[in-house]
Write a protein that binds this DNA or RNA. Structure first.
Lengths: 355, 355
DNA sequence: TTGTACGCGTTATCAT
DNA sequence: ATGATAACGCGTACAA
């Protein structure tokens, strides 16, 4: 039960002054070699560590970054946090996590809890509710208080800040183009209701690809899915809806789901209907989650590189923080992280020759 | 660009002393109503928040807990963190996350990074490497420095601390008993190499169930799997091994996998071999992850209640911290969280009558 | 070569 | 009713 060491205790123990001890620990040449060694040995023995709270108070920076995310039980966000952690730790920053559960209120509460000097800056992905309300005053106020924000994934143009995003529209286009390249003509889109940018943009990409290939857009082939809970009930409803579309359009030969759940569910439904994947039907999902990997057949998906996004977000925030320290200020940037189509077994390997 | 408000600034702005302002903000009756209102209005307008770093320094507690986990991209741990967050936030605690990636070295680095006064206590699940080395001096030293530790899941008897665990052995027994109740006689066990307590205890449970039902234990039916990477390569090897066992023992009628990956993989392999699940073969996994839920057929598993474990761990740590504050000390406890068999579609519903 | 004093922001005790 | 002062732990400019 060692008491924790402080400069003061070391000083009194060794009959020196606090500042002498402080300097000795930094190996300051002002202090006699003799005392330096004595102090250092003593400090090491009692493994003294400078109190970080005192340092934070003095330096006016905590070397801690606040990460606000909608969900932590979610492969993508977990990956992002991993990336943030990695970079942050390598730069001696700590990471405090706040989870909003997609709630506007909890987003504000979480941020206010940290805005009292606990953190130097935020990395945040907005909650769905915040996007729906489109009320970003809490973000603006944070920035007004000189606390920098880096937004990732669910960013918003109204707020001036650094942003890390993927090109959802282009990614959607790319995925659907892949299906068309295989010779698919009747492509089912599984997307979200429109308030989430994500779903909307990926839907635009779907339309882009069709248009570029002169395939007429058919609203019948678009299933817009509302909020999906965790329950088996919701899951069954989703299956139901997909089944219904297949009944009306048994000749669907491609599926693009804007997230993993949609795509995997559709894949399962299709197989239960006796369809061969990928022989007669190709399926592509979105997100590099674990479901896609273990689905049968393994699901081809658009990977978002969550880990990399986290790394970039952390690096960007830390750069900004150190910039502030040194007085300069560069303009805000928006970095677009490239997505990648990971070809697995739910699509054809060879591309059908275009006629 | 409002500068952040401090007591000092308010005081000088209002022509009062710092201590008057401080008291006024607490609505201390010593201060004239007039001044109280003036100060409070002013503070509210500039939304003043007491600097938490200064408070931490003064109070000698940060109201922050450090959570050290092996992996964050893992459904179970993500759930636990959720539970911790929930309880911590409701008690006005912040949560700092440190990820070890199963490395002993990173575990120490992470802990040392926080042990400098950044946090009041730890919640930790040990890394595999730490368990292998069985070197727990860093934990003991943390405790010696009066920083309480709550261990969860991967806890260890050598260290005196509060612990939250599940009964792995009993859970394994329960799962296998369920298979036996269905009339299964030749049950394949997929487990880990022995250095991880988890796998070993669940294996014991497997043996218990067999013994209780007078089914001879057959080493041939135990597959001990080493470290599994994230790569498709490793995955394929796993499938290979399971396949081989099936070739030698085509009449296996039950499978118990000590984790989700093993069970889902076995499920897929079995189906590819043309076996009907659950008609001729039942499969049970471990952990309430997402894979089990979306596997086909949906996988019956032993749920570990990760969220609840997180809640309990956080509550236990906070209790301990407040106890220390008030001087009393209660003995360390080990809380066992009950697991639950979640029956889905990879096992039979009805129990075969025992003869 | 060593020590004193100050400030970071806050609260609590003790004058006035 | 208000204000000055000390203390939390640290680093550093300035004295000695």
């Amino acid at each position: 039960m060692k008491p924790k060491m402080t400069l003061k205790k070391i000083a009194s123990e060794l009959g020196l002054s606090i500042s002498t001890v402080s300097k000795a620990l930094k190996d300051n040449k002002d202090i006699s070699k003799e005392n330096r060694e004595k102090v250092q040995a003593f400090a090491k023995f009692y493994n003294y560590r400078p109190n970080s709270v005192a340092l934070s108070l003095k330096n006016k920076r905590t070397k801690t970054i606040g990460v606000i995310i909608p969900e932590i039980v979610h492969h993508y966000f977990a990956k992002v946090i991993s990336g943030i952690e990695e970079v942050a730790n390598s730069k001696e920053y700590n990471v405090i996590i706040g989870v909003t559960n997609e709630s506007y209120r909890k987003e504000i509460i979480n941020m206010e809890m940290l805005i009292d000097g606990s953190i130097d800056g935020f990395i945040i992905s907005l909650s769905k509710e915040t996007l729906q309300k489109a009320d970003y005053t809490h973000l603006q106020e944070t920035i007004n208080q000189n606390i920098p924000i880096v937004m990732f994934d669910r960013a918003v143009n109204e707020i001036p800040s650094d942003k890390i995003v993927i090109d959802d529209r282009e990614s959607g286009r790319m995925a659907v183009q892949k299906l068309i390249d295989e010779g698919r003509k009747k492509i089912l889109l599984l997307t979200t209701k429109d308030y989430l940018n994500i779903g909307r943009l990926r839907t635009e990409g779907y339309k882009d690809a069709l248009a570029e290939n002169r395939i007429p857009f058919d609203e019948d082939l678009v299933v817009r899915i509302g909020e999906l809970g965790d329950s088996d009930e919701d899951q069954r409803m989703l299956e139901e809806r997909i089944n219904k579309v297949f009944e009306l359009h048994p000749d669907i030969d491609g599926i693009f789901g804007v997230n993993e759940i949609y795509a995997v569910t559709a894949l399962n439904v299709a197989r239960l209907r006796g369809l061969d994947v990928p022989e007669t039907l190709s399926v592509i999902g979105f997100s590099d989650g674990i479901l896609s990997k273990y689905a049968r057949p393994h699901l081809t998906t658009v990977s978002q590189h969550g880990f990399q996004m986290g790394e970039i977000a952390a690096q960007t925030l830390i750069n900004r923080l150190e910039e502030i320290d040194s007085g300069e200020e560069t303009p805000y940037t928006t970095q677009v992280v490239k997505t990648e189509l990971i070809i697995r077994d739910s699509t054809l390997n060879q591309v059908v020759q275009k006629k």
